[in-house]
């Protein structure tokens, strides 16, 4: 995998920078926004963005920028958990189907096709209905809903590499299955899987924030991007920044990981 993308000019670089900043916000929020995200200042209610309050203040006078920075931790961790669940289970199923072929392949892919026929947000919602609300349930629900798509992509990747001539050459050279898998198939599948992971991460941020926006994620006092938008929605008429700026943060993060996915795709 090439870390410096071959094409696309500066956009991938900016994407990496943005994601690095978001990761820094998630890991050490105090570095970017030293203030307390829940410090209430009734005198400073609903102030528009200014140098002092980059993103303005909310209905209780809390600094919105500080809340968005501190919200990164929950939003990104939940998205990461969702991606990990989807990718690990999906890859395992895809590898199984791609390598086993025959009945196992048919069976696994039938199930995958059925799961794909249910819109993924609807499937996440059904899982939440069963598991109950809460940010980790949301993360798991989003991850499980993406298993089928991951499995399908992984399987087609395995089949593509498996059928390539250099794998046949390795067989002709006497390599055993394990060796073909470890030395030839997997190294040539890392690029597409990295791209898939980045793409899934973007989709997971979208899904998690949408479900939080609908009210199934964190409960109000804790900051989280989707729920910040949901709270801000009630004040859209008088304080647009409350909903739109956290929303833009979500959009830019999704855009950055999608762009990165495009850059690492071989």
């Amino acid at each position: 995998m090439r870390l410096v993308p071959r094409r696309g000019g500066s956009a991938p670089v900016i994407s990496v920078l943005w994601l690095t900043a978001a990761a820094a916000a998630a890991l050490t929020p105090g570095l970017l926004a030293p203030g307390d995200p829940s410090a209430v200042e009734p005198a400073n209610r609903l102030r528009p963005p200014s140098w002092q309050h980059l993103f303005g203040t909310d209905e209780l006078g809390r600094d919105l920028f500080t809340r968005v920075v501190h919200g990164a931790s929950i939003s990104l961790t939940a998205a990461l958990v969702a991606t990990a669940v989807g990718l690990v289970l999906g890859s395992a199923l895809g590898l199984l189907a791609g390598f086993a072929r025959g009945w196992t392949d048919t069976g696994v892919m039938r199930v995958v096709d059925v799961l794909l026929s249910i819109p993924s947000l609807l499937l996440s919602l059904a899982l939440i209905a069963a598991l109950g609300p809460g940010v980790w349930n949301v993360a798991v629900a989003v991850g499980l809903a993406s298993v089928a798509a991951c499995a399908r992509i992984m399987r087609s990747e395995v089949l593509r590499v498996r059928e390539s001539l250099f794998v046949e050459a390795a067989h002709a050279g006497g390599a055993r299955w394990s060796r073909v898998l470890l030395r030839h198939v997997l190294p040539n599948a890392t690029g597409p899987v990295a791209a898939l992971a980045a793409l899934e991460f973007g989709a997971a941020i979208l899904a998690v924030s949408a479900l939080s926006f609908l009210g199934y994620g964190v409960q109000p006092p804790d900051p989280e991007w989707g729920s910040l938008v949901a709270t801000g929605r009630d004040f859209l008429r008088e304080a647009w920044w409350l909903a739109l700026l956290p929303g833009c943060t979500v959009a830019l993060t999704v855009l950055a990981s999608n762009r990165l996915a495009r850059a690492v795709r071989p």
Partner: peptide, 16 residues
Amino acid sequence: VQVVHQNPYASLNPRM
């Protein structure tokens, strides 16, 4: 018994 394939572009593992 060994083989030399037709397509020299595809028969070599690009990662090695």
